[in-house]
Amino acid sequence: MSEVAVLQLMGLCVVGTGILILLFLKAVFVRVLGFVIIMLGIFTLIALGVPQMASLPPAVETFDIASVKTPDDLASIGQKIFFSKGQCALCHSIGPSESARCPELAGIGAKLAPEFIYESLTQPQAYVYLDFRHDGLPEEYPARMPHINKNPIALSEQEIYSVIAFLQKMSGEPISIKVEDVLNIDVGEMKVASLVGHGGN
């Protein structure tokens, strides 16, 4: 029997029990209980009657550090970090957006040198961007840029370079981050392996 059929059977049994109680028992409290379980049973049966659909999580992509061969591999890891662990997309969008709280990043990899992006990520207050997209004086953006290499986001060096690689690729710029350099960064442990999909080890 399928899981739905089992649950339907249970629901029917519950409703049946409730009906039996209402038919044959006199004690008020028990009758009220019978009434309650009939309602709950019917609710469950109705919920079992609508289309059943579980929402499966997308596959966790594991990443083997040895598999990074090309800058594109690096950029695809960077893309994942951009939209998950790095939390960049909480504020930034790629392309103009109404809900973005901070500057949009379309073409940023072509506009800025990787060193400058690195500095913006690790020392965000070194150069503060203001919002000019309106009349009057420029304003600060509603959200302040956190230090990406510190808690709570705490991306490793390798992760930050992956993100920069992604930003460059997205802007149609040749990726200037070198794979060997990134792989040679001494992190003590294989942090990169655990970053994508959050510890899908």
Binding site: L7, L48, P57
Partner: peptide, 18 residues
């Protein structure tokens, strides 16, 4: 923070209703 446990899926409505 992604849920990487085996319970990361959301159950179907009937199961949830139970």
């Amino acid at each position: 923070m992604r849920d990487t446990s085996e319970y990361a899926y959301s159950p179907a409505l009937g199961y949830a209703a139970a």
